[in-house]
Design a binder for these strands. Structure first.
Lengths: 231, 231
DNA sequence: TTGACAGTTCTACGGTGTAGATTTAAGTCT
DNA sequence: AGACTTAAATCTACACCGTAGAACTGTCAA
């Protein structure tokens, strides 16, 4: 008689859960994501999910990692500038693909196999640019932070062209105190995030090159042990 | 008769709620923050909080704005490079003050009075650098995104020097495929985020200057609209 | 058949945000 | 003073959440 109350048992493997979880999270965002909802989609008891992932947090980490799988890993070329641009583009396109997932990479320090490949390219580029090791590490990470930050800002809608109401607000500002802001209103309306991205990545890169040049005016690679001449 | 069950009524004004909410959020982080907990601290019914703030989201927005109040607004000087550095430093120090609150500025597009001041400085600097208006807007926002991204990464602990276990992990990588990564392990152990920040902000700025120079090789101010000689 | 066992489900608990009705306290006006 | 108004604080209730622990079910080995 128990048969009446027991539902048909469904089997799911970890991967199927993760796939469904990722899809739900990517489409509904964090607010619309819950274990119970996910279980409902999979037609499974909520506790089944927690049998495969010890906690919700672990599941979210897996979602973040899953997104990283999708990043097309760039390959090193002979031009370190292009290598940096390639890494930058690959992370930005990741953010474009899954804008609602992207912020998880900040919360959990999402790192995966692809990440090591990318950071190797970045570090290698910094050294090829001529930076001493002591700076290559910091500037490499800063480059990362820049790219991720830009991508996140874009994903969260902070870099969209301003709309009618924003325009009105800016035009209500004091014309002399906010002279430049008001002068740029047309440019802000026509803002092209891609253009801004490429321009700023380019600026960062050329700034790195310049810094490397100043670091070692004539001899370009004398010590490589890690010792830095001028810090 | 009813007096037995009714507790002493406590009055709270909006500001007191916000202050307590901010303190709780700043110290416990988002996970440890709830309306009910906040109400418990204030010795008040949870619904009282919601009488002053229509929803939890509105309260979180207020918390984000409250943090922005604390940013010391930089003032424009005669050197646009230093102005940019000042803005960068002020946001980074904000992230340092309230690392657990900082990410809210991305989720809600936190903007306040201080924000307009800062962005005016940034936009003005970009124009003084010699960029055309069409680029000043994008690069200004990109500069913002860079600074905020770096600050967020730092606040979330992504830029801390690596520890023992990370070191072991990196040293387990293939020595030829990950040559640069492994070479930088010592530098990553001794990483100084502040130094990385200043170096990368400097790089960005000099990249912007260079870009502006290439943009207008000889004539520096021909368009009339905003007249951006050197202001 | 029996047993073991991994995977699924059930039940229950303490937590969450908040809608709606209710009570209270402080004014304000006769 | 008493009556009326009204904003603020509270009570009650609901639907949802993550998850601990016990119970169940199907599968394979002995």
């Amino acid at each position: 008689m128990a048969a009446l109350t027991t539902r048909a048992r469904r089997k799911v493997d970890k991967q199927a859960i993760l796939d469904a979880a990722f899809e739900l999270f990517a489409s509904e965002g964090e607010g619309g994501f819950s274990i119970r909802k996910l279980a409902g989609i999979l037609r499974v008891d909520p506790m089944t999910v927690l049998h495969h992932f010890r906690s919700k947090e672990e599941l979210l980490r897996a979602i973040a990692d899953h997104a990283l799988q999708g990043v097309e890993v760039p390959v090193a070329t002979e031009c370190w500038r292009n290598d940096l641009k390639a890494v930058a583009n690959s992370y930005r396109s990741l953010a474009h693909s899954y804008p609602r997932v992207f912020h998880l990479h900040f919360r959990y320090h999402a790192t995966g196999p692809a990440d090591h490949v990318s950071s190797e390219i970045v570090y290698c580029a910094m050294r090829r640019a001529g930076l001493p090791d002591s700076e290559a590490a910091g500037l490499g990470l800063a480059f990362y932070a820049f790219v991720l930050g830009f991508a996140l800002a874009e994903a969260e809608g902070l870099l969209s062209p301003i709309g009618e109401s924003d325009e009105a607000e800016l035009n209500a500002l004091d014309p002399v105190a906010y002279k430049s802001t008001r002068a740029l209103v047309p440019a802000l309306k026509a803002l092209d995030p891609s253009q801004a991205f490429h321009a700023s990545v380019g600026a960062f890169i050329s700034g790195v090159a310049e810094r490397a040049k100043m670091q070692a005016p004539e001899s370009r690679a004398r010590s490589r042990g890690g010792s830095a001449t001028t810090t």
